[in-house]
Design a protein around this nucleic acid. Structure first.
Lengths: 193, 193
DNA sequence: TAACATTGGTTAGTCACTAACGTAAGGGTG
DNA sequence: CACCCTTACGTTAGTGACTAACCAATGTTA
């Protein structure tokens, strides 16, 4: 559907063009200080074209295709595994495929998101949807899990990763992200006893 | 400072007036469908007066004075108690003082927040600050706790309460909120083993 | 009472975002 | 090839949240 054809390729091209200029300008001038009109002008399109490709200004930044991938990985973990361990391991698997090429981009984008109030709000809003996604993946894997249990664990796990990411950005990527994730999940377990 | 004086009382009065009309209109017509201008007109003030009392349209809804209270309760729990239990119990204590008079208002306001994307985003954004608050309360109480541990546990606990609140609203307040909190925290513990 | 501070109104903006047009070029039919 | 339908994009003219600058009125204090 969206694959070949001259038109589809052109569309994808302008999309990338807009996103590229947007991120460049955000890093250079800051998110709030950059207007949609400027981005559109830089990409040589009208501001309407911008909104046809991205529903909001925020959405240029948070195109995370990661969530569905992680959800699949969760569903694929062995059923005997405890729910939180399953999410933990699925996250590590996901990171091992993302980090090799995408480490720097992830760091820059995450920092931009965490330091910009509007984008931060959007991030949390996405988590709302992500919790549902992870919950379904959990309950599909482990049928004895109630919806409430699934939601609690998915939400707690997401909060844990977010904490890892926050810490990672705080130290400017100096620490190893998978290790931070391990330590965060260990902290979660230790807090309960 | 903000207590007596005719002027201070008048100011508080208009503030309450604006907030009252705003919530009424939000419930009647929906959040998005209600403009600031309408709220201001209903309260017989200019839209500038609105923004002098509330920095954003969203802020009319989420005046939660609960966080500092809960933070104090956390800090007051016995040091021997495990961190997550301390938060759990502090939350129950807090609810026992809020629920008697404020149950219906809490339910209505929470539903409004959870069903409105813009307000939901704002809620998550607040949680960012709340995590810091709770983390400090935790580490003050339990000096052996690292910052990462504190943050993970505070974030996980918050995610757990939020799940309880979401479930509470989903069933329209039919279930007992403190009991839902208990079950959510139990679910969190069970997920780890 | 005079000087001050603060609340609120007025006006004129900026910026994100939308709706209703129109146009030109892609792409599958006869 | 000619035909028409689809679609990406532009133009224009809005709406609504939010801000800044300036001004009027009214508590508050010396």
């Amino acid at each position: 559907m969206t694959g070949s054809g001259l038109r589809a390729r052109k569309k994808e091209h302008t999309r990338q063009l807009i996103q590229g200029h947007a991120l460049r300008l955000f890093l250079a001038k800051g998110y709030e200080a950059t207007t949609v009109e400027e981005i559109a002008a830089a990409a040589s399109v009208s501001h309407m074209t911008f909104f046809r490709h991205f529903p909001t200004k925020e959405s240029v930044v948070d195109t995370d295709d990661y969530d569905p991938m992680i959800a699949k990985l969760i569903a694929g973990r062995p059923p005997a595994e405890h729910p939180l361990t399953a999410i933990h391991q699925a996250l590590l698997e996901g990171l091992s495929t993302i980090l090799p090429q995408g480490r720097d981009i992830l760091l820059i984008r995450t920092r931009l998101i965490l330091t910009t109030p509007a984008l931060r709000a959007r991030l949390w809003e996405n988590q709302y949807a992500t919790v549902r996604l992870f919950t379904d993946a959990l309950t599909a894997r482990h049928t004895r899990l109630s919806d409430l249990e699934g939601r609690v664990l998915a939400a707690a796990a997401l909060a844990t990763v977010t904490t890892s990411l926050t810490t990672w950005v705080d130290c400017d990527g100096a620490e190893d992200l998978p290790e931070l994730v391990d330590r965060s999940f260990a902290a979660l377990r230790r807090g309960l006893v």
